[in-house]
Amino acid sequence: MIVAEPKSLDEIKAMTEGFDRILMVGCGTCTTVSLTGGEREVNLMATALRLARKVEGRDIEIGEQTILRQCDFEYIDELKDVDSYQAAVSFACGAGIQGLARKFVGKPVLPGVNTQFIGFNEEYGYFTEQCKACGDCILHLTGGICPVARCAKGLLNGPCGGTNNGKCEISKDKDCAWVLIYNQLERLGNLEQFKKIIAPKDFAKAGNIRSMDLRKAGD
């Protein structure tokens, strides 16, 4: 899933300063699971913002709606009374925020979260990055552990000199991906794979204006 962290009340308050009727839209998929953009979090942020504005004597009306996904237009169509709001704050990932913006024509759509990474939930409230969406997967070469996402330098041919007791040079709290990969390949009886030099990554496959087209010509 895509993991996002909440923006602060101060930031959201500053973004919505000029409005007195806004819609806060939660996303029922990724950001709900990452505990930052679901129904509950939208309600907490809306309540906090209403209070903050009330204290300043400038009440704000906030509608709260959560849909299954904001990266799917059919769910966005389920939103009600969108025309009556001056602006919307989206609590989805960057794709969801832009999906909402596509449908909320002529009105500002503001980000309620900072999209962080593709990863998973290690334990309640703790998420780790697993994938950089690099467009050229090599997990079959690295024992199912991604060095592009999990090595701080994205190295492809083994640990750097900064690895120490299995930890990364940037933090003692982070595992060295290449020590994990070595151990896993050893368990798989495939250390020969570790010894093969992996060629430089083809960055033409990543970081550009990407799209994927499965439509057949003539369809």
């Binding site: 330098k153 994205g154 492809l156 041919n157 750097c160 030099i197 060629a199 430089p200």
Partner: peptide, 9 residues
């Protein structure tokens, strides 16, 4: 940080 290549490459 760049790390387009690394030492081996």
């Amino acid at each position: 940080p760049v790390f387009d290549l690394e030492s081996v490459q």
